[in-house]
């Protein structure tokens, strides 16, 4: 066991079952916050909102560093490039926008979708982007090129989540058509359709070790899929309403899920049991993200504020 894993485990064991940790609150958005992402160095956080803007927050000063304002409609998702220099946003105005992350200057608009774009992902090497829209269309982009290099068709309804596998060979997509699909990035071939969810599937996420894929559903569960076998291996139950977001820890040993029930749940993946919950939002939580060192989690949603939680002390352990 690594030193960091041991310290996390120790903290979990010695932490009181009920602890009240006040989160850091970032305020500025005036509508739902749909997505959050840390910069690769963990010093900044970016947020996408229904108020038509994205924001980059400086986490040391807890202030907005830049506001990104060109979208004509909601901003639904966003990613940093691996070097942290660019921010790419997905908008209801059917555009992907590539920005200078420091100056908020729009560098490029990527046009290829004909309906609102709900999700965007970037491969770990920064070469490829993927985006999914309201019609179920997925576009694959090569960063720097203005048009999609490939379109992936198969989903019958809105695509709410896309994620690249850590090795960049696979793309996962999750959709309102109740399915999660796997695609080969090299040629766009459909690899598998993962069925099991009984309603809309929102965001999906690969574990950093590439072995598991998690999907969040309106059916109130998180489903875990074995990537190699392409089969469901677990259903994480407990949320009382739609689950909108999932995120693995950096060591792939735990997972966080966020729901319309205003809770973030923490799951231990060896036993596949719930460790505890993080409570503080006053309305549905649409987005969570975990800093790369695993020591801070950001959450946001319908109540517009972004909350920053220390991990693991913010987790109220189940008795």
């Amino acid at each position: 066991m690594s030193r960091s894993s041991l310290s996390v485990l120790l903290l979990l064991v010695v932490a009181p079952a009920v602890c009240s940790v006040e989160p850091i609150r970032l305020q500025g958005h005036t509508d739902n916050v749909y997505a959050l992402v840390y910069s690769p160095d963990g010093k900044r956080l970016a947020s996408a909102s229904g108020d038509g803007t994205a924001r980059v927050w400086d986490l040391a000063s807890r202030k907005t560093q830049a506001v990104f304002k060109e979208h004509q409609g909601s901003v639904y998702d966003l990613v940093f490039t691996p070097n942290g220099n660019k921010l790419i946003t997905a908008g209801g105005d059917q555009r992907l926008c590539v920005w200078n992350a420091a100056t908020a200057k729009l560098e490029q608009s990527l046009v290829g979708h004909a309906k609102p774009i709900y999700c965007v992902a970037i491969s770990r090497d920064g070469r490829f982007l993927a985006s999914g829209d309201e019609t179920g269309l997925i576009c694959l982009w090569q960063l720097g090129k203005p048009m999609p290099i490939r379109t992936l068709k198969g989903h019958a309804r809105e695509v709410y989540g896309v994620a690249f596998s850590p090795d960049g060979k696979l793309l996962a997509s999750s959709s309102s058509d109740k399915s999660v699909r796997l695609w080969q990035v090299s040629d766009g071939a459909a690899v598998a359709t993962l069925t099991g969810h009984t309603s809309h599937v929102y965001r999906c996420s690969f574990s950093p070790d590439g072995k598991l894929l998690a999907s969040a559903g309106q059916d109130r569960v998180v489903r875990l899929w074995d990537v190699a076998d392409k089969r469901q291996v677990a259903v994480l139950q407990g949320h009382r309403d739609s689950v909108y977001a999932v995120r693995f820890s950096a060591d792939s040993k735990s997972l966080f899920s966020a729901s319309d029930d205003r809770q973030v749940y923490s799951w231990e993946l060896h036993q596949r049991t719930r460790l505890g919950r993080i409570t503080g939002h006053e309305a549905a939580i649409y987005a969570i993200t975990l800093r790369s060192d695993g020591r801070q989690l950001a959450s946001a949603g319908m109540d517009k504020d972004i909350l920053l939680w220390p991990i693991p002390s913010a987790i109220r352990l189940d008795k």
Binding site: R157, S176, K178, S199, H200, Q218, D241, S242, D260
Partner: peptide, 9 residues
């Protein structure tokens, strides 16, 4: 829209 209503709850 052919599925579960997103705001049913």
């Amino acid at each position: 829209a052919g599925g579960d209503a997103k705001m049913a709850s």
